[in-house]
């Protein structure tokens, strides 16, 4: 792909495996949504103010968070390392949210 070719000629990295760009793209599509969702949920619990206000502010911030994650995914030197970071942070933020969330919220999320 031309994008991969451009990256290869421009970057200092000598050679990149063929799966690196597909991995980054997949991560940018799904990992971004996952990590944004867990961070937004965690923020909604941590932000001060009424529950509705905290939810709204967290939701509004989510698109900036998502943009930052995409930039990071394509800027990172190693596709594999950034995948690990994104998935790790997703588990960390999601887990922390789960610990902070009261039982009825957890039940609601489980359907």
């Amino acid at each position: 792909m031309a994008s991969a070719a451009a990256t290869r000629t421009a970057g200092k990295a000598p050679s990149r495996p063929g799966w690196a760009m597909p991995l980054r793209i997949t991560l940018a599509l799904f990992g971004t949504y996952g990590l944004t969702s867990t961070s937004t949920a965690l923020l909604a619990r941590l932000l001060p103010g009424s529950a509705l206000d905290a939810s709204m502010v967290a939701s509004m911030m989510s698109f900036a968070i998502a943009t930052g994650i995409v930039v990071w995914i394509f800027a990172a030197r190693s596709a594999l390392a950034v995948t690990g970071w994104v998935l790790g942070l997703m588990v960390a933020t999601g887990g922390l949210f789960w610990l902070l969330a009261p039982a009825d919220i957890r039940a609601g999320l489980l359907g």
Partner: peptide, 16 residues
């Protein structure tokens, strides 16, 4: 349309 795209902010504080 954020409550459609990113409902998790609301769902984190409201079961309904």
């Amino acid at each position: 349309l954020m409550t459609l795209y990113m409902p998790w902010g609301l769902l984190a504080n409201f079961s309904d």
